[in-house]
Design a protein around this nucleic acid. Structure first.
Lengths: 337, 337
DNA sequence: CTGAAAGCGCTAACAA
DNA sequence: TTGTTAGCGCTTTCAG
């Protein structure tokens, strides 16, 4: 059973390869019955097109790339689902790349895209990403990029984000309303604009309540759960009067719960906790966790929709649309009382 | 800044395109200093190769596909990490496809691979997958496939699994040792061999303890959390003497906890629970959850390593190696007492 | 060690 | 509506 290609189909049907090609693309230039014949023969001979040849000839890969820091987080897992869903719908393929939070990787990955591997990119920047030249270079080659969640500071880029400032503001305010007096903010990678937004929301809520905003109440965490656990334990020991915690990313939840438990601090009576989290298990934690939950799946979907819009439109007009989806504050037991 | 390609490099250096191509591939046939010159010029002109042309010419895509049912589950998220890690190391690209548990999608996806888009496939079959012809067809085209977690029933395929039978046996035995007398097993898609294994382990533990194995104590769940919650609630209401539950997949945990809570059943005093789960939050649930935890990241890694071994070896010799990695029973409060 | 030349399989002007 | 004819950019025999 030899490899059958377009040429073979052409011979079989006494047509030219271009006719076959067009028929298979359902081109308007081909008569309906010719199309029919071609499609039937293709099916009969079990023809499967070679995507590399097609991409080479058409300068179009029908593939997009998703470049993200990690996939451990529920947020990214769900976002990928959203992206994949619309990509599949459009007949596109999805390449996944993890930067593992390293700028260098991110650069290498994007650079390779200049070769034309993908038609567009959906990405969330690494924690190390401050410079934006590698992204700019790609855009200069007319490869559209849509950012989601973690966006670069550049102003003229397309991105899908959530209302981080407001969410963080609401989370903090919620704690203050529950009579917390000293709220600890757990930060991570302050270079990320998303993080600066979250800090700012926190600041505003404090200020608005007439409370001091001080660096002393911000703890910079790492990407290592163990380390965070230690940091947090030390912090809470040194400042036992802390009675509220806002965790700005999902992965911090475990460390918070464990540190509190091992220090004998009870949630929510001793300390109230709210965390940014998309984890399905928030409601069955001990105690159930009050969360800021982002529309992860929808963000992925929106980013993809935006990208495909860009792929359709004229080249040379870079995507710059910005979309802000609302997160939700879901109050549960960890902030009760 | 026009597109620079291999031909352009050739002109620039007064060499033939084939020499450039070889130099860039670090071929042994090229003199070290020529290589040097080529590489330098490439860098200077910011040359980025076109992967489609390369794939077309060499009949090698340097890409693998990961085909899975969903990615919501922590297991798959972690496995992808493992796969991506080794792929990146080998300079390979990773395409992700979600079948959403639909056989039809799975078939369409695999079929397209016959066109040569990928060099190999790592997959976990959908819940609907019973026939194996679409996978066989792909293998017939010399595209190696490595299965992980959910494997087809075919015997001669390469796969990476965990010791499901034993794990389930241990989980059940653990409950019996904690004096459970009526253990409910929550199943899902019995067509999956993995599920049959888990049921069998459960059966053995019961039998060994002299307890009856009855279909009455197996509840077939769906992929919808809401529905599962209802099913479970109805079941527990009808059989209030149930004092142990084994959940065979992570996603069932939430439904179990919620159903118990809303029925006023206390874990672990009224009913003890153990679940297959890779969720990081198991330890901070209410109560903390006893789990069978699979080596997800390592499974992904192992599958990838196996696949790359297959890619290196001679064509025509299908991969058949089987790897079984051990899961771990992590005892926590949900089975205390 | 290097070059010439023939593709890989498909697409896309340009004709007819 | 269909065919002719160049490529797309890189790989790879086969020579030298």
């Amino acid at each position: 059973m030899e490899k059958i290609n377009i040429k073979r189909l052409a011979e079989e049907l006494n047509l030219s390869t271009s006719t076959i090609s067009r028929a298979l693309q359902d081109s308007y230039q081909i008569g309906p019955e010719t199309k029919q014949r071609v499609v039937e023969m293709a099916k009969k001979l079990n023809y499967v097109p070679n995507p590399h040849a097609s991409s080479l000839g058409s300068r179009k890969s029908n593939t997009i790339a998703v470049v993200i820091p990690e996939v451990f987080d529920s947020y990214f897992a769900q976002a990928i689902n959203g992206i994949e869903t619309v990509a599949q719908e459009k007949g596109y393929h999805v390449l996944i790349y993890l930067t593992h939070e390293r700028l260098e990787q991110e650069q290498a990955i994007l650079r390779a895209f200049q070769g034309g591997r993908v038609d567009g990119v959906i990405m969330s920047v690494s924690a190390e990403t401050t410079a934006a030249t590698h992204m700019q270079e790609l855009r200069d080659q007319n490869v559209p990029i849509v950012f989601f969640d973690r966006t670069p500071d550049e102003v003229d880029t397309a991105c899908v984000t959530t209302n981080d400032l407001e969410s963080s503001y609401l989370a903090t305010k919620h704690l203050l309303e529950r009579r917390c007096t000293t709220v600890l903010l757990l930060a991570i990678s302050r270079d990320l604009s998303i993080m600066r937004q979250r800090i700012e929301g926190y600041r505003r809520a404090l200020t608005e309540a007439g409370l001091p905003f001080t660096e002393d109440n911000i703890l910079d965490c790492t990407y290592d759960d163990e380390v965070n656990y230690e940091l947090l334990t030390k912090f809470l020991k040194a400042r036992p009067y802390t009675d509220g915690i806002v965790a700005t990313v999902e992965k911090l939840t475990t460390s918070v719960y464990q540190a509190c438990r091992n220090l004998g601090l009870r949630i929510p009576s001793d300390v109230k906790v709210v965390s940014f989290s998309n984890s399905r298990s928030a409601s069955i934690l001990n105690p159930s966790l009050t969360t800021i939950t982002q529309p992860a799946f929808d963000s992925g979907k929106a980013a993809a929709v935006l990208l495909f819009k860009g792929l359709k439109s004229k080249k040379g007009v870079p995507l710059t649309e910005k979309l802000v989806l609302p997160s939700e504050l879901i109050v549960r037991d960890s902030t009760a009382g």
